[in-house]
């Protein structure tokens, strides 16, 4: 039987789906009766989903365009 500490040691790989079948079964057995670890896993998955879908730190075209032109102007000057 694994402890919460054991579970937390593997949670990174578990979230990535990167654990051996045998280990996964042990982790899920722990999850089935540990409400705290269930919450951590569930909210971590939701965190990843929210972050992934957020489109954060985008560089809109109107912002990018002048920067790209400045870079190209310097490069053309250097290349000439």
């Amino acid at each position: 039987m694994i402890s919460c500490a054991d579970f937390m040691a593997e949670i990174g790989n578990y979230l990535e789906g990167d654990v051996a079948e045998e280990v996964r079964l042990q982790l899920e057995s722990h999850l089935s009766h540990c409400a705290i670890c269930q919450v951590v896993v569930d909210s971590s998955r939701k965190t990843i989903q929210i972050v992934t879908d957020s489109g954060s730190f985008d560089l809109p075209q109107p912002v990018l365009e002048p920067i790209a032109q400045q870079i190209m102007a310097k490069i053309r000057k250097e290349g000439s």
């Binding site: 705290i36 919450v39 909210s43 939701k46 989903q49 972050v51 879908d53 957020s54 954060s56």
Partner: peptide, 23 residues
């Protein structure tokens, strides 16, 4: 934080609000 999250957290805020929150 060990309190359960809402089932569908992405519905709780608009996309712009979520982006601002994440950033």
């Amino acid at each position: 934080q060990i309190r359960a999250w809402t089932d569908d957290p992405e519905q709780a805020y608009s996309k712009t609000e979520r982006q601002r929150l994440v950033e």
